Simulated assay, not measured.
Amino acid sequence: MSKLGKYLIFLGKLFTNPEKFRVYLALTFQECVDIGINSVLIVAIVSTFLGAVTCVQTAANMDNPFVPQYIISLIVRDSTILEMGPTITCVVLAGKIGSNIAGQLGTMRITEQIDALEVMGINSRSYLVLPKIIAAMITFPMLVTLACFLAIYGGYLAGWLTGAISPQEYIHGLQFQFKGNYMIFALTKSVVFSFLIVTISAFKGFYTKGGAYEVGTASTAAVTNSCIAILIADYLLAQLLVG
Rank of each mutant, 00 (worst) to 15 (best):
P86S: 10
F66G: 11
R77H: 05
I35S: 05
F66C: 09
T48K: 03
V43W: 01
I71P: 00
G36T: 08
D63T: 15
V76D: 00
L93V: 10
I35N: 04
N64I: 13
A94Y: 01
L41N: 10
T80D: 04
V56K: 06
T80F: 06
V33F: 13
I42F: 12
G85M: 08
S39E: 09
V92C: 06
A94H: 03
V40L: 13
I37L: 15
A59T: 05
F66K: 14
V91E: 04
Y70S: 06
G36E: 04
T58A: 07
G36M: 10
A44Q: 09
I75V: 15
N38W: 11
A94R: 05
G51H: 02
E83A: 09
Y70V: 05
I72H: 02
V40T: 15
G51D: 01
I37E: 07
V33Q: 15
G85Y: 04
I71A: 08
E83F: 12
E31Y: 06
I71Y: 10
S73Y: 01
L50K: 03
D63L: 14
D78V: 07
T80H: 04
P86N: 11
I72N: 02
V40W: 05
T80M: 10
I35D: 04
T58N: 02
M62Q: 15
T48Q: 02
V46W: 00
L74P: 07
I35M: 09
V46Y: 00
G36C: 07
P68E: 06
L50R: 02
G36N: 08
I81R: 00
S73F: 01
S39Q: 12
A59K: 02
G36Q: 05
T89G: 01
I42E: 06
D78L: 04
A94I: 07
E31C: 08
N61F: 13
A60N: 14
F66E: 14
